[in-house]
Deep mutational scan, measured.
Amino acid sequence: MGFKLLSKLLVYLTASIMAIASPLAFSVDSSGEYPTVSEIPVGEVRLYQIADGVWSHIATQSFDGAVYPSNGLIVRDGDELLLIDTAWGAKNTAALLAEIEKQIGLPVTRAVSTHFHDDRVGGVDVLRAAGVATYASPSTRRLAEVEGNEIPTHSLEGLSSSGDAVRFGPVELFYPGAAHSTDNLIVYVPSASVLYGGCAIYELSRTSAGNVADADLAEWPTSIERIQQHYPEAQFVIPGHGLPGGLDLLKHTTNVVKAHTNRSVVE
């Protein structure tokens, strides 16, 4: 069995187990497998329904001669939608809004960016022009300005110390501490036991640490421990890039980060 097929099978099995364990909360999309990078042309966006009122959005972007996937989250909030992270750029984010209108038909009224990198804030200006209120932590807003990236308009308070959590509509926002970046936030959907790890969490097929220019490698494993301790009931975990899975993604990420750190020390 090929690795790609095995990865998709694991996603399907995880979703099936969740649907059985929580039949009222989960209505997993039966329309197909989780979209992969090879299936999404740059400039297009796919939506994948995880649970009743919960979707991931998947886009792709060219970077350094390669094409990478990027995940975000959409959560229903009454007759409105909360968006977590842009679709990595203005063109993708405009396509995301169009796809949401086509498939869901509810307005996106608020959006949260989970850290300051372009795959999370690139497209904020498109959201703002569409009347979406954009939010991020003060740290993310400051770092985005320093980096020359787009800056969300509103500040999220109460997320300055490791372990801080605040309720934001249908989700809980959690600051686990520094990891992929010093400002990275985690998003949890309690009604569906869905954990969105953003770039602080890796997919299972990833074996290298990737972009760690703004990471705190020493603190990252401790931050992941905080996530595990705060959300032990999480059933569906979405990484910032690639295929979702279960809580095993947290341990896998820790292993990859520690291996990278150990290699760096040896070198």
Rank of each mutant, 00 (worst) to 15 (best):
T182N: 12
T182W: 10
A144I: 06
P138L: 09
A259M: 11
G177C: 05
G43N: 10
V54C: 04
E80N: 09
V112C: 06
E39Y: 11
V146Y: 13
G53R: 09
P41D: 14
K251N: 12
P107N: 11
L82V: 09
I58G: 03
S38P: 10
D29V: 11
F63A: 11
A259H: 09
T60I: 14
P152T: 03
T109R: 14
A111D: 03
S7C: 14
S16M: 05
H117F: 00
L47K: 03
L5G: 09
S22G: 12
V45Y: 02
Q103T: 14
T222G: 12
L73I: 07
L81P: 02
S162T: 11
L83F: 03
Y135Q: 01
G53T: 13
A19M: 15
G210M: 05
L81E: 01
S30M: 15
V112G: 04
E225R: 13
R141N: 07
T153F: 10
L83N: 00
A192W: 05
V75Y: 02
D216V: 09
Y231C: 06
S223R: 01
R120D: 02
L173R: 03
S30Y: 11
D79I: 10
P35W: 09
N262D: 13
I224M: 05
S38C: 07
R142K: 15
K91Y: 09
T36H: 12
T153W: 09
P176H: 04
V166N: 06
T134R: 01
G131F: 03
Q228V: 13
S223V: 06
G158R: 07
G105W: 05
S205T: 10
R226A: 07
W220M: 01
N149Y: 09
S208N: 15
A200S: 06
S162M: 10
N211T: 09
A179E: 05
E219C: 04
Y48I: 15
V11I: 14
G105R: 11
Y188P: 01
S113M: 06
S22H: 09
A234W: 01
D79W: 09
Y12H: 10
A130I: 07
P152V: 02
R167W: 11
S162Y: 11
L6N: 15
L9R: 15
D79M: 10
I17N: 09
G245L: 02
F116Y: 09
A95N: 14
L6R: 09
I17A: 13
A209D: 06
A133Q: 14
E145F: 13
L173H: 09
S30V: 13
C199V: 00
A179W: 03
L156G: 02
P23S: 11
E80I: 07
I50P: 04
I186L: 06
P232A: 09
Y68R: 06
V256M: 06
S181T: 15
A136W: 03
Y231A: 00
T182F: 13
H57Y: 07
V67H: 15
A94Q: 14
V37G: 15
G197W: 02
V28P: 11
L24M: 15
G105D: 10
L173K: 03
G72F: 05
T86L: 01
C199E: 00
I17F: 10
Y188L: 00
E157S: 12
V75I: 08
H260I: 09
Y196T: 01
L173I: 14
M18L: 12
V171S: 01
G105E: 10
Q235C: 06
G242Y: 03
G72W: 02
I74H: 01
V194M: 07
L24P: 13
L217E: 05
I40M: 15
H230Q: 13
S31L: 10
T254S: 12
T114C: 03
L24F: 14
R128M: 12
S223I: 01
V45Q: 05
T261K: 12
A19R: 13
A130T: 10
